[in-house]
Design a protein around this nucleic acid. Structure first.
Length: 422
RNA sequence: GUGGGCGUAGCUCAGUUGGUUAGAGCUCUGGAUUGUGAUUCCAGAGGUCGUGGGUUCGAGUCCCAUCGUCCACCCCA
């Protein structure tokens, strides 16, 4: 019986991993460019953490968490998102108290959902968070980081949608008015909307059912219930984005699935990924640190789905830094094989950036050259006993970059360095 | 969790109303005289037809279950 991978949990094969390496390298560079430090976290946390952070009545916690008891009877869960763990660690190590912290984090997260394109049970996020900055410039900075990441990856076609949920008093006033309005039209609502009317009325605004959408059109808008501080904060965020030339649209129905957001919420969406169009989403969560037992500390950040990003990179045919071999050594004859073996290590010592494959497993020169071509190398180095005796190798271009020529072993490193721009 | 499509060689797929040793292209391996790739020609390797049951004289082909996958809903990154 063949053992298969777990549903919704995918392998990334060597042919595809260069895209992942590229994303990680570019992201790490971008985050560092803004002064963010990487935090590395365990994949498992106490279940209670996510119940308190994400919200006990959210879908994520209610039906999508991988929860279990360990052998000591602890209630644990595979993390369904990164922010909760970042805050837990921040509180635990005392790095959130009375100071600014810029943090990023990445790794696998787990949600028990029905898989489809761009949605998996184990997927990977990049998370960026700024703590201890209450002013809207932090919101702008977080959004700008994502924009900078798109720029450096060479991606386009995103729409930035923003909205504000306002302060807690604003939200409460709007919520009351919204429930009132929806109750008047309850008969025309679909079943989901009726159910959410009391548990999470904001989510009704996001409904895709046409009949419900029609009712939602006339629903009281949160924007009309915002208090002065809420409006000032949102205006400042918009002004910041405009100063940076970052285009956005205001989507008054944009609400987040996780309970902890206040003030600014945003999503970077694309229409090139089918139903899973949100690649990056985030917002401000000023009450969350306190809610998790930490000092009163503001926060703002985003989560980005790496699988969706990589899917979109493929759609947009974004070039990725290659990790294919550059040079392949063909060798035959007992003495030449020994010379080539030593040569390969010498070259790696001399040119640390060189990606070099030494032929192994024998084979005719013809088949060795086929392997050289197949692996994507630009150059083949050919060493038979003739070359070995002469202390030289034949350098052959596999990509139509000039004729083959003989090069002495002493000059080889310099020659490769020049040709490959190492 | 709901509804639907699909699972045949490493990959992309064909397999006619159920009927003998299951096919193609690409990839891979070897060869077309002695040491030169990606083009051409020849040959070869590779599949318990996702898995388990059932119907039948006989199942890749029909039925059931199960696992996986894809799409939409739901939810979200």
């Amino acid at each position: 019986m063949k053992i298969q991978s777990v549903r919704g949990m995918n392998d990334v094969l060597p042919a595809d991993s260069s895209a992942w390496q590229h994303v990680h390298a570019v992201a790490a560079q971008v985050f560092a460019a803004y002064g963010y430090g990487e935090l590395r976290l365990p994949v498992v946390e106490r279940t209670e953490l996510f119940k308190r952070a994400v919200g006990e009545v959210t879908d994520v916690v209610e039906k999508e968490m991988y929860s279990f008891e360990d052998r000591g009877g602890e209630r644990l869960s595979l993390r369904p998102e990164l922010t909760a763990g970042v805050i837990r660690a921040g509180i635990e190590h005392g790095i959130l108290f009375n100071q600014q912290q810029r943090i990023w984090c990445t790794g696998p997260v787990f949600r028990y959902e029905r898989p489809q394109a761009g949605r998996y049970r184990q997927f990977h996020q990049l998370d960026v968070e700024a703590f201890g900055i209450a002013t809207p410039d932090a919101d702008v900075e977080i959004i700008a980081i994502a924009a900078q990441l798109w720029k450096r990856l060479g991606m386009s076609g995103f729409q930035l949608q923003i909205n504000t949920l306002g302060t807690l008093p604003s939200r409460a006033a709007h919520r009351a008015a919204l429930i009132d309005y929806l109750l008047q039209h309850e008969a025309a609502l679909d079943e989901d909307a009726k159910r959410r009317l009391h548990t999470n009325p904001l989510r009704v605004l996001d409904s895709k059912v046409p009949a419900t959408q029609a009712i939602v059109e006339g629903a009281p808008s949160l924007l009309d219930y915002l208090d002065e501080p809420s409006i000032a904060h949102f205006d400042a965020v918009k002004a910041g984005l405009e100063a940076l030339g970052i285009a956005y649209v205001i989507n008054p129905r944009l609400v987040r699935g996780l309970d902890y957001y206040t003030h600014t919420v945003f999503e970077w969406v694309t229409d090139q990924l089918g139903a899973q169009g949100t690649v990056c989403a985030g917002g401000r969560y000023d009450g969350l640190v306190e809610q998790l037992g930490g000092p009163k500390t503001t926060g703002v950040g985003f989560g980005l789905g790496i699988e969706r990003l990589i899917l979109l990179m493929a759609v947009q045919q974004v070039p990725v830094v290659s990790n294919q071999p550059q040079v392949y050594i063909c060798r035959f004859g007992a003495e030449a094989e020994r010379v080539a073996l030593r040569l390969s290590e010498t070259l790696r010592d001399q040119l640390p950036g060189l990606r070099l494959v030494l032929n192994a497993g024998g084979g005719s020169l013809k088949s060795q050259l086929k392997r050289a071509d197949g692996c994507g190398a630009r150059l083949a180095l050919i060493i038979g006993d003739d070359e070995a005796a002469a202390g030289a190798v034949q350098v052959k271009s596999l990509r139509g970059e000039g004729e083959a020529f003989t090069c002495s072993l002493t000059e080889l490193a310099a020659e490769l360095s020049r040709r490959l721009a190492l």
